Computed example of a mutant assay.
Amino acid sequence: MSAGVFSEHGLFVCFEGGEGAGKSTQSRLLRDWLVERGQTVLLTFEPGDTGVGKELRRIVLDPATGELSDRTEALLYAADKAEHVDHVVLPALDRGEVVITDRYVDSTLAYQGAGRTLDVAEVEAVARWATGDLRPHLTVVLDLAPEAGLGRFDERDRIEGQSLEFHQRVRQGFLDLAAADPDHYVVLDARAPIDVISTAIRARLEPLLEHR
């Protein structure tokens, strides 16, 4: 795989991790902090933050969908990412904004690759092609044992309802991705207090903001 493409205009930040790790909370806190500092920020998510993506999200997450081929599932997620990058992420980066996304390519590699036990390299080739190989400047992995994260849900969607072993493979998938590229990742214990996590994220982001 290539080293990837990094936007020369905006700043691209991604939150990754398993279910119930607090990605949405930390994404919003980071957005608010950046806005206070005078940054123009776009907060977005995958799957589903485009018109097409909403339909794809319904298909892949609704328990009523039932069983899908693992490859079909991976391709549906890749289609969502293609729409998301072309119509949401890239335009904002080209405007020089900070883009914060709740999930991106790593989720596909962890869930459809490691979780579904598909060939991760093959899944990555599809996902990178779908996104034009656009990479985040920083990916924040909020690490949490699946037993803890899944316990936070009264009802589970199609992915949340997978086996504990599936979610354990997903967790390890995220950790492996972070370990392979420490310059672009920070791994934080999702069990820590919310303010401790947000402070650590800001500290890691500060140098990137200074060099914009």
Rank of each mutant, 00 (worst) to 15 (best):
L150S: 00
T108F: 01
E73R: 00
A190P: 01
R103F: 04
A190M: 15
G173N: 09
K54M: 13
R58F: 11
A64R: 12
A92W: 03
E206W: 05
L34W: 09
Y77R: 14
D181P: 00
L144M: 13
F6T: 06
G22K: 06
R135N: 03
H211A: 14
H137I: 05
T40K: 07
V52W: 08
D157E: 11
E8H: 07
H9I: 00
Y185V: 10
D86C: 13
A82R: 12
R95V: 11
D80I: 05
I59C: 13
V98W: 09
L11Q: 07
R191G: 07
G113L: 06
R171P: 05
A21L: 02
V105Q: 05
L109Y: 01
V99Q: 11
K81E: 05
T117G: 02
V52F: 11
I159A: 10
P182V: 08
G115D: 10
E147N: 05
R171H: 07
A130Q: 00
V196L: 05
S163I: 07
Q172S: 09
R191Q: 13
G151Y: 13
R58Y: 14
L61H: 02
T117N: 10
G113V: 14
A3P: 05
Q112A: 14
L90T: 14
L68E: 12
H84N: 11
D94K: 15
L188D: 01
R58S: 09
G10I: 05
Q172W: 14
Q162M: 15
V41W: 09
L68A: 11
D32W: 03
A178S: 13
D119K: 06
V85N: 12
T101L: 11
I159S: 03
D133T: 08
A203V: 05
L208A: 08
A130W: 03
